[in-house]
Design a protein around this nucleic acid. Sequence first.
RNA 1: GUCCCCGUCGUCUAGCCCGGCCUAGGACACCGCCCUUUCACGGCGAUAACACGGGUUCAAAUCCCGUCGGGGACGCCA
Length: 492
Amino acid sequence: MPDSAPSAAKTPRVRFAPSPTGFLHVGSARTFIFNWLYARHNHGTMVLRLDDTDLERNTEASVQSIFEGLRWLGLDWDEEYKQSSRLDLHRRQAEAIFAKGLAYRDFTPAHAGDDNQSSAQGAWLFNPGMREMSREESDRRAASGEPFALRYRVPRDQGRNLSFTDGVYGEQSKPADEVEDFALLRSDSFPTYHLASCADDADLGITHIIRGQDHLTNTFKHLLIFEGLGVQPPQFAHLPLLVAPDGAKLSKRKHGAVVSVTTYRDAGFLPQAFVNFLCLLGWSPKDDREFLSLDELTAAFTLEGVNRANAVINFTDADPFDPKAVWLNAEHIRALPVDELAPLLGPFFSRGGFETTPEKVLAVTPLIRERIKLLRDAVSAADFFFLPQLAPYDPAELIPQKGDAAMALRVLQHALEVLPAINFDHDSLDQALRAAASHMGLKAGQAFQPIRVAVCGRKNAPPLFETMAVLGRDVCLARIRQAEASLQSLAV
RNA sequence: GUCCCCGUCGUCUAGCCCGGCCUAGGACACCGCCCUUUCACGGCGAUAACACGGGUUCAAAUCCCGUCGGGGACGCCA
């Protein structure tokens, strides 16, 4: 087993430890990203550890979906572990703590229902009669097969104070006697999260634990476990929570698919844009930069830049994505070279049922790059390039501003005369159609609109000449003829 | 209930530690104007915040106290 000790060198070892009980959600993704950034910024090691000690709730599907999400983010890790295959270590460690007298057996039957007794009437500290039970009686009852949980014997006499310096929240301390005798082993002998997590962190030589602020108060228990293990506790840094617009912690149950990383991927977010966005939630480079590449993020990332207040991630039923995330995505799309963007667009067209070729998509990409915010927008922005037959549209759309059907008809008929004779490239089309406009005494805008609608099937479209060049002469002529016909039927 | 954390434009944030340069900066969104063959991009501009109340100080977003508000943790879940 890689018992790789932290070694004398001070290179940090950080870990991301998701529990596979659902899809990878955005809060977890951000925790992963911050750990990754910290590791890479400091030339340290990134450890991925599946905290899968909850047999009832773990599923293989969820393991897959977490890996899927992580892979999409495009951030790597250096070592990988699974808690479920390290149970022996956990039990040994619990045993060691027990042997030191720092834990005791609790024979109180496990709570059946989910109604907990501690919430209403103050803090529960331990079950009477168990903490003080003699070792002889404890051994005897254990030997007779009576089930028990192993609890930490939290020091509560000498006015101990537990304290640590959080990398984000600063000095934290709490009297030890306010901490309850938390469980280390359950009565089925499986380790609890607290034990498994700390035992692994100690064994894996984790130097910095960067995790959500919901663990801030749990840290005091973890301090005790590290002490029981006889090791120096790692550095802690807690991240402000990501919260929903209503202020509550993001949850899979309450908020559904909008908190799943794959939802962003499927909608056509670029992983680098998504990472960029998540970084801006609770962290800032403090120099007004917002559009940052992965390298820039890595270079700029420090724990000092992390905020303490929770960050709202905006979404509604109608619009599941935070407008700033969408904006950043559009920025990253525009920053991408055409030959890198085009292959990313292809799958969205295929999924939309369009027949495409990589060459055609490549030709279309520069025309829509500035017009899409999500990759999936490409489909609606460029459908007419791939449609063999334009969807029916209102012929009235063909009529230009301050014009009438007759004017539109004239423009189209003139185009039909001019187009067969010229080259179908941008400059030739530009020249020919502008000349046609002035010949008819029309403004360029007036003359182009009927053609644009005829060729694209709608008013809003990419620039006309480039579009026609990509479409090709045959398609353009056919569509203009069709428009001419529909206009004539309108006039009747 | 107990303990802990947080509180600058609607949202993400800079400034706070080391008071004065803050008539509080940037960004998104929204609105307006410009550019322009439509849309988009781009440019310019407008609206918009120091939770509240007390101190300390010549001076407070920045320091102290309190109030209120929000969040989190209190499991043989993680």
